[in-house]
Design a protein around this nucleic acid. Structure first.
Length: 171
DNA sequence: GCAGTGATCATA
DNA sequence: ATGATCACTGCC
């Protein structure tokens, strides 16, 4: 069953945790679909979260974060790697969940490289039309299987860098 | 440990 | 126009 906008229209940390164990689905050019269970995510809560891109305001790059829940937010980092995020919360509320790992892939850059995800889908809505969607997990991951940790690479964010907004599925 | 890599944004 | 920064990775 595909997850729809209502699922993503909630705070990023809630959505992030519930995404663990759900299936990231990507349709290839030849029509086949890869389905990978999401294993690691990070929540970026909104403009007040100093680690969130939208804390720096509404710019060309962050514009897609202001889209409706379920929007795909892609950006290029270090000139080489595409980061795959899903926008959460209401339209015009800029928050998102970064998918850091799924299936056997760990690391957000390696994941998008392996799946061929790039700027082309930035701003698209999750679903068959974009070729990328999420299917709900068979059951919600119990708390004891979820490891919480600080987010990676956000040391500049002061006390927000310490917040445990990274979630890892250990099963 | 640190180099590679280039878009983005603030500053001018 | 210029320069700093960066939600990473792979090789030293």
């Amino acid at each position: 069953m595909k997850l729809i906008a209502a699922f993503f229209d909630r705070p990023a940390d809630i959505v992030a945790k519930e995404l663990l164990g759900s299936l990231l689905c990507v349709k290839n050019k030849d029509g086949t679909v890869v389905r990978l269970p999401v294993s690691e995510v990070e929540a970026y809560l909104g403009p007040h979260d100093l680690a969130c891109h939208s804390a720096k305001g509404r710019t060309l790059r962050t514009e897609t974060m202001f889209g409706p829940p379920g929007t795909i937010y892609i950006y290029l980092i270090y000139g080489m790697y595409y980061m795959f995020n899903i926008v959460t919360g209401k339209r015009d509320y800029p928050a998102a969940v970064l998918i850091r790992g799924a299936g056997t892939y760990d690391g957000p850059g390696k994941l998008t490289k392996a799946l061929g995800i790039d700027m082309q889908v930035n701003g698209h809505i999750l679903g068959p039309a974009s070729g990328i969607w999420i299917e709900e997990p068979k059951y919600m991951s119990p708390a004891e299987e979820i490891e919480c940790a600080p987010r990676i690479g956000v040391d500049y964010a002061g006390e927000w860098a310490e917040r445990e907004l990274r979630f890892i599925l250990n099963r």
